[in-house]
């Protein structure tokens, strides 16, 4: 066990955990931030996507010991009132079915648009390819992203 100081959604946290613990489980079990989902544990489904700085990362394979001082943003901290343009677009397009993968989809899309505010269809597909949706909401996800990218 070791003590780590984390900056999550603009707040300071101190956790005492095994250094190998993926940040996903620190968020879920220790900080009670459960919006970030477990789906595969091997960075293949994208349900656990968070931002480390501005980059989208898979929190299920990122040990807490590697985070350092980089700020973490989770779905809970993406916007103050759930009003990030992508969150609004997700509601507008009524994207979710079961909803389980959607936090990861939104976090991944948010990082994409921050780096590339006007992506092509191909760039959206390439950037989003690591995020699985078993319900098959892909067409709505893309429509929601495009509606924000157009603005």
């Amino acid at each position: 066990m070791a003590v780590f100081h984390l900056n999550v959604n603009g707040k300071r946290y101190e956790v005492d955990v095994d250094p190998s613990t993926p940040i996903l489980w620190v968020l879920r079990d220790h900080l009670n931030l459960v919006g970030t989902k477990y789906g595969c544990g091997i960075a293949q489904c994208g349900a656990c996507t968070i931002h480390l700085g501005d980059a989208a990362v898979r929190s299920c394979i990122l040990p807490v010991s590697q985070v350092g001082t980089q700020p973490i943003t989770t779905i809970e901290g993406l916007s103050a009132n759930g009003d990030h343009p992508l969150q609004r677009a997700w509601i507008e397009h009524d994207v979710p079915q079961c909803g389980y993968c959607q936090a990861g989809q939104i976090m991944n899309a948010a990082a994409l648009l921050k780096a590339n505010p006007h992506p092509t269809d191909e760039e959206i597909e390439a950037a989003m390819n690591g995020n699985l949706c078993r319900c098959g909401t892909y067409t709505r996800i893309k429509a929601a992203i495009k509606s924000v990218a157009k603005r």
Binding site: N32, L33, V34, G35, T36, K37, Y38, T74, I75, E76, L78, G82, Q87, W90, I91, D94, P96, G99, Y100, Q102, A103, I106
Partner: peptide, 22 residues
Amino acid sequence: SRKNVDGNKIVTGEPLFGIDYR
């Protein structure tokens, strides 16, 4: 057409699913 009643909770990451229960 009416929006998913859980939509806001889903897109803001509120606890909803069994795995989120504590």
